[in-house]
C-alpha cells in the first residue's frame, strides 16, 4: 500500500529526514517511536503533503501512485488521513460545514455522488457516538473551545467520517487522560479493517497497550534505526532511548 524509499526531507535548508525506508501493507498497524526531534512529526507532515517541507530525495508511492506528485488535498481524497498532534482551531467554520466540505470534496474527487443531507447527518451522529464526542461540539466552530481531549477525539471522529485507507496518528496520545486514550484507541480498533492501515506515531508505549502494532520502528536522527515487533516497544519502555541510540 505505502512504499517509502530513501526519503530525505528538509525545512529551511535543514535536513530532518535522512533516508527513510518504510513499507506498509493493508491491514497492518505500524508504530513509529523515537525521542523528541527525531523527525516523527516531519515524516507525518511529509506524507500528508505539507508544503513547508521540501523532499530532497527519495520516493513515496501510495496505492501505486506517486504521492509526491499530489497536492495535500489530493492525497486526502486518495485516502490518506493525518490526525494532527495540534488540531487547528477554525473560528466561524462550524464542524458540520467543515465535515460537509471534506466529504463533498472526496466524492467530487472520486466522481461519486455525495451523501444526501439526511444520510450525512445520520453518519455524523453515528460516528460522533462512536468516539464519544458530545453533540454540542458539532454545532461549534472547528476545535474552538474544545478541551485537549475533545480535540483529539475530534480527529478520530473526522477519521471515522472520512474512512481513510491509510491513517497516520501523530502523537494522538499526547495530552490525553487514560479514559480519553481508551476511547481514541477503541475508535481506531473499530475502524480497522483488512483493507486499511495505520501508522501510529508516539513517544510512549502506553498507547500501544490499546492499539496493538504489528511492526514497531524506532526513528532516530531522521532514520529508522531499528524495526521489530511489539516487544520492541516494551523493551524500549524499560531501557529508554539511550539503550538504542548509543548502541
Amino acid at each position: 500500500m505505502l512504499h517509502i524509499q530513501n526519503l530525505h526531507a528538509a525545512i529551511d535548508g535543514k535536513e530532518i529526514l535522512k533516508g527513510i525506508n518504510l513499507h506498509v501493507k493493508p491491514g497492518e498497524i505500524h508504530a513509529i517511536m523515537g525521542p523528541n526531534g527525531s523527525g516523527k512529526s516531519t515524516l507525518s507532515s511529509v506524507l500528508a503533503g505539507r508544503e513547508i517541507f521540501e523532499v530532497t530525495q527519495g520516493e513515496i508511492s501510495f496505492m501505486g501512485k506517486n504521492l509526491l506528485d499530489l497536492a495535500p488535498e489530493e492525497r486526502a481524497c486518495e485516502g490518506i488521513f493525518m490526525a494532527f498532534q495540534y488540531p487547528v482551531e477554525i473560528p466561524g467554520v462550524s464542524m458540520t460545514n467543515f465535515m460537509k466540505a471534506a466529504i463533498e470534496a472526496k466524492h467530487k474527487y472520486q466522481g461519486t455522488e455525495p451523501p444526501s443531507p439526511t444520510e450525512f447527518l445520520k453518519k455524523m451522529k453515528e460516528k460522533r457516538a462512536m468516539v464519544g464526542l458530545p453533540d454540542k461540539l458539532t454545532g461549534r466552530s472547528v476545535n474552538e473551545g474544545f478541551s485537549g481531549g475533545e480535540k483529539k477525539k475530534n480527529e478520530i471522529f473526522q477519521m471515522a467520517m472520512l474512512e481513510p485507507t491509510l491513517a497516520i496518528l501523530d502523537e494522538t496520545d499526547s495530552g490525553l487522560d487514560i479514559d480519553a486514550l481508551r476511547i481514541v484507541a477503541d475508535g481506531v480498533n473499530q475502524l480497522k479493517t483488512p483493507n486499511n492501515a495505520y501508522i501510529v506515531i508516539t513517544h510512549y508505549q502506553r498507547l500501544l497497550d490499546y492499539i496493538v502494532p504489528d511492526v514497531v520502528h524506532i526513528l532516530f536522527d531522521g532514520k529508522i534505526i531499528k524495526t521489530g515487533d511489539k516487544s520492541l516497544a516494551l523493551e524500549l519502555e524499560e531501557k529508554g532511548y539511550d539503550w538504542i541510540t548509543k548502541s
Binding site: A48, G49, R50, A71, P72, E73, A76, C77, F81, M82, F84, P87, V88, I90, F98, A101, A102, A105, K106, Y109, V142, Q158, L162
Partner: peptide
C-alpha cells in the same frame, strides 16, 4: 493546511 489535509482544496 488543516482543511487541505482533510481534502478541501
Amino acid at each position: 493546511w488543516y482543511m487541505q489535509a482533510r481534502g478541501i482544496d
